[in-house]
Simulated scan of single mutants.
Amino acid sequence: MDRQRLSRLAHARHPIAAPLADESVARLLERATAHTEAGRALDLGCGEGAWLVRALASRPRWRAVGVDLDAQALTRARETATALGVVRRIGLHHSDVREFGATEPFDLVLIVGSTHAFGGLRPALAAARELLAPGGRVLVGEGFWEREPSRAALDGLGADRDEYADLATTTDRLVVDGWTPVDGHVSGQPEWDAYEFSWSGALAEWALDHPEDPDAASVREAADRHRTEWLHGYRGTLGFVTYLLRRD
């Protein structure tokens, strides 16, 4: 199955594509947008636009732009924005995030769970810096090692040991690059477990509900494989941190 369609199915019940509970998302958005009544937000790798439509719903004088390669996800984002009455304040671009350019800077740039599109956290932040207005904020989410990864964890994630660092090292690298964390959130185990059960469960349920679909068997296989890789591999090893950053 196409990876983009698989991701849409997996996130059907958890549109924030990261292990963050609704209350965590709400608090981070409140902090990220509190510095100005009227602002512009950009989400690089926006998917179905969950972060942006929530921000616009709570900030009536903000405008937003989302960028993603998944055209169907952008269609869903537009539908959600229409239902919430914020569609006139959002622009959605079907584009590679690495190629996106803007004529005006943004007061908030979001890259949560999509740093891989840039080749990692530091190049993602380098791209965000070029799009950020003076005094603006970046909300970025990234993985880190909660503990030394086992071979089972690395195999389950399809990752190398050097792909992530521990939380302290990850934070130190940001500071060296000229960023100051002004807030943040480390996802707890209940958030991780809810996200992973939702991810694999949404796929399994779709396969059960669509047994005649040609993709049903591959979707069920993906659900079972993901659940096994998580429970027998990286559970408790891979962490997730969402930073709110400012430039020095």
Rank of each mutant, 00 (worst) to 15 (best):
D68K: 05
D68C: 11
D68Q: 06
D68T: 01
L69T: 03
D70N: 02
D70W: 02
D70R: 01
A71Y: 02
A71F: 04
A71L: 12
A73D: 05
L74P: 08
T75K: 10
T75E: 15
R76I: 04
R76D: 13
R76V: 10
R76M: 08
R76T: 12
R76G: 08
R76Q: 14
A77T: 02
A77V: 09
A77H: 09
A77W: 08
R78P: 00
E79H: 09
E79V: 05
T80Q: 14
T80S: 12
T80N: 05
A81R: 06
A81Q: 08
A81I: 04
A81C: 15
A81D: 06
T82C: 08
T82M: 09
A83Q: 14
A83W: 04
A83F: 05
G85N: 06
V87F: 02
V87T: 04
V87C: 05
R88G: 13
R88T: 14
R89Y: 09
I90S: 07
G91Y: 03
G91Q: 15
G91C: 08
G91S: 14
G91W: 08
L92P: 10
L92Y: 10
H93Y: 10
S95M: 14
S95I: 06
D96G: 03
V97Y: 00
R98Y: 00
R98N: 02
E99A: 15
